[in-house]
Design a protein around this nucleic acid. Structure first.
Lengths: 130, 130
DNA sequence: GACGGTTATGTCCGAGAAAACATAACGACT
DNA sequence: AGTCGTTATGTTTTCTCGGACATAACCGTC
């Protein structure tokens, strides 16, 4: 059985930083707005915004710069710090998959071949986009 | 700010394997029983047992061998497969901390020095032992 | 044969998290 | 001045996971 997904959450004191925040940063960078980012990943604006607030409060300088009003209602973009934190997190995951391939495969090799018997599951059920 | 904790969860198809199961395996190995393991980590027996069941069902051969009745009511121990899966997971975490130290530090370096201002917290609050 | 500690399994309930819903403020543009 | 999409923030409802209980079966030991 192959590794499907890996979720890494780092705790710096009380601040957790994991896939949720990383994906959100990425979506904000790509879309230019918090609400569009939330929509694109099936997350309520409220939640997306509160994650942004949490990050901005925990870091010395904000990771996301936002503005309201204006041309298209406002928007948000990643700061340099935001870009670099996101990049560092992505690098960690890549290195993990890369350097730990033997151990990851060793676990996978011991799994039951077809996965555990789960009675008729509606196929191709998209990943719940946390 | 220093990294306090790292939680890695691996998904093989529908089976998640993370710190909860790894710690449980370790506690079973050390205590020789599912219930003692659960107690030692503040987890109900029911939950500990269901995690064991989930693992045993997902792997080709069980990770935990259990027996009921007998001298002291029964007990549980790790199989060879259990030992090796646990070992592989631990190795992954060690390698992660080791090889990704620069990126982990890079994120930590951008955090607000004293952590976010949290009004008077009862100090030395032990980690919630998930 | 009763005892005791454990495995095994089901049901019910509550806390905490996330979603849903509701509103206000903002400001470039028309 | 009005519009529009977004940021910002609060309140209420829903849902899910885990904890709390309850019970049975098992089997060396005394």
């Amino acid at each position: 059985m192959e590794l499907t997904r890996a979720r890494l959450r780092l705790y710096y004191g009380t601040l957790p930083f994991g896939p949720g925040k990383a994906d959100l940063l990425e979506a904000i960078r790509d879309s230019g707005s918090i609400s569009a980012a939330g929509r694109s990943m099936g997350m309520s604006y409220k939640r997306a915004w509160s994650l942004v607030e949490e990050m901005n409060a925990a870091f010395a300088e904000p990771l996301v710069a936002s503005a309201r009003g204006g041309a298209h209602g406002g928007g948000a973009r990643l700061t340099r710090a935001g870009e670099e934190v996101l990049s560092a997190y992505r690098t960690i995951l890549v290195k993990l998959i890369d350097h730990c391939a033997p151990e990851i495969a060793a676990i996978g090799a011991r799994l039951r071949p077809g996965g555990v018997a789960e009675p008729d599951r509606p196929p191709a059920d998209a990943d719940t986009p946390q």
